[in-house]
Design a protein around this nucleic acid. Sequence first.
DNA 1: CTGTTAGCGCCTTCAG
DNA 2: CTGAAGGCGCTAACAG
Lengths: 347, 347
Amino acid sequence: MSIEDRYKLNKEITLIDIANELNVSKSTVSRALQNHHSIGAETTKAVHELAKKYNYQPNAIASSLFKKSTKTIGVIVPILSHYFFSTVIAGIEDVAYKAGYKVIICQSHELYEREVIVSKTLLSAKVDGLIVSVSKETVNMDHFQQFLDKNIPLIFFDRLPTGIQSNSVSVDDYEGAFKIVEHLIEQGCKRIAHFTGPLNIALAQNRLQGYKDALRKHHIPVNDELIYECGFERTQGITTTEKLLTDQVSVDAIFAVCDPVAIGVMLTLKQKSIKIPHDIAVVGFNDDPTATVIDPPLTTVAQPAFEIGVAAADIFLKQVIGPSRSYIKEVLKTNLTIRQSSLRKNR
Amino acid sequence: MSIEDRYKLNKEITLIDIANELNVSKSTVSRALQNHHSIGAETTKAVHELAKKYNYQPNAIASSLFKKSTKTIGVIVPILSHYFFSTVIAGIEDVAYKAGYKVIICQSHELYEREVIVSKTLLSAKVDGLIVSVSKETVNMDHFQQFLDKNIPLIFFDRLPTGIQSNSVSVDDYEGAFKIVEHLIEQGCKRIAHFTGPLNIALAQNRLQGYKDALRKHHIPVNDELIYECGFERTQGITTTEKLLTDQVSVDAIFAVCDPVAIGVMLTLKQKSIKIPHDIAVVGFNDDPTATVIDPPLTTVAQPAFEIGVAAADIFLKQVIGPSRSYIKEVLKTNLTIRQSSLRKNR
DNA sequence: CTGTTAGCGCCTTCAG
DNA sequence: CTGAAGGCGCTAACAG
């Protein structure tokens, strides 16, 4: 069948079709398409023209099979619908597409099992690299070890795992927490509660530590009664606040592990007619767009989400070019963003 | 090299390795792995055990090349960080994974050019289907036509294109708009402004039409001065409100094309100390999580985002099994969600 | 019940 | 400068 016929029937056009039409071999076509210098200018031109005319699309699958590279980066995040994660992904995509990579995005939905499944899927999809923020349930990291074993670049961000050595991009959670708690103290807060994330996750530990150390620096005793293990969701912020209120624990500030939780806290306090920041100041972590929607606007620690994605993808590119035995650990700075929800002075 | 050796060196284990070890042919192994009935129970068991022992991962690329199916669905959305889109994706993933498909997600970032690029990428990645919400810039649909030409199921959702026949999932935008504007009228609003989306997009047209018809039904003249072409972003809601205020146009309600815009409207009105809903009522469309964060809470039209994703993926599955010549057009119901931002009576 | 054979579409050595 | 040949890993006729 002629290339003309195949084209009209919407059949895939392959190297062979072009080769036959031009009476050259498929190797020549293949080389011409890559602008290989050893092919005559005439031939190269003719091949390109025909390819264009018949809208030749190289079969990426076949190419991958040979080259053992899919030009694909896998990304696993807990939940896509968090602004932080989707912004990180935008950063990843930005550098990935420029470098000719496509991105496969998967969600673990905060489920360990789902995470194992998608990591297996991505492994057999032969991604060239994997960028991950682990689910809150994850403790066992065996499913990631396989990527390292096969020398597939593996980069963790935000939620760094314990017990596995690899590349990572994170922010200085400790310092961010320290600064924001210190800010609360400067505002005159003395009984500052902390709603933590799941404590198997390093960032939750680090923020907790920053909280504790800031208190200690200012000679405020660390009181375990003021530390509530919470989570990352708005609903958990709501339930934890309700618990705190029924516990009748007296506090003058709440430092939530992240903005969604802080939003939950504020909604609950407002519902109970507790004045923010007058009665209780509230601060979060992330700088979600919602932080400027709630009234009063939320004081928080801004994370450079887009840059985190960029950094992660950059590490991937470095590792894929010259896979070194050493790992890159990048720690970005946070930015204390003061708004009304914590301002008790000068009002 | 023995399978043992290859395993230790973290080399890929293939069918051949297992076949050699068991002194059978690779076809037998291939069949055993698929639990083909014609293979002896003994052999099948032995193969599975060895596969497990050496952590055999089938090479999906090689399989795809032969089967001409990648078991992958491509998804293109304008922006991942909108709650609506990430929730639709969650719905798509849910049914896709259950049916053994993986999902590649791409963003167009509301750019026509980017949309063309990613659709080409997905085409050459040989996705088995494509689910799309088009960018606001997109008018030319040629890049999607290729999928139809190759009989690759194509499903549009939310932002339906014009000038291309295909499957689609949408909500009854007209009815949703009609209901919410009628609600405003019932609340005593007489001068209701509408901030539209880009009018090349059908849903923006439909919501506009619903707005107009609701007014007409209640004998309120449609006034073009009250119709502002806006967009889908919070920032556009802010600038459009500012324009309306400097225009000194008198209104008692604003119907925004979507919640992010409505949020921008409210933030601006609040900043100018205009009371919501007393001076101006505000309503949106989507039911973003932010709708319950802003004060007063936002009246809006809830869209079943997750179900939209489910419906789109279901259509894909139907089309992939028996690709029919007829297209499926599914229209889901919306749900008027009344909150404080529009309640002028009974207060 | 199992093996042989022949590709899927592409890329690259090796020969001219 | 170009062609022939082989193979990436898997699958499915077609034979036994």
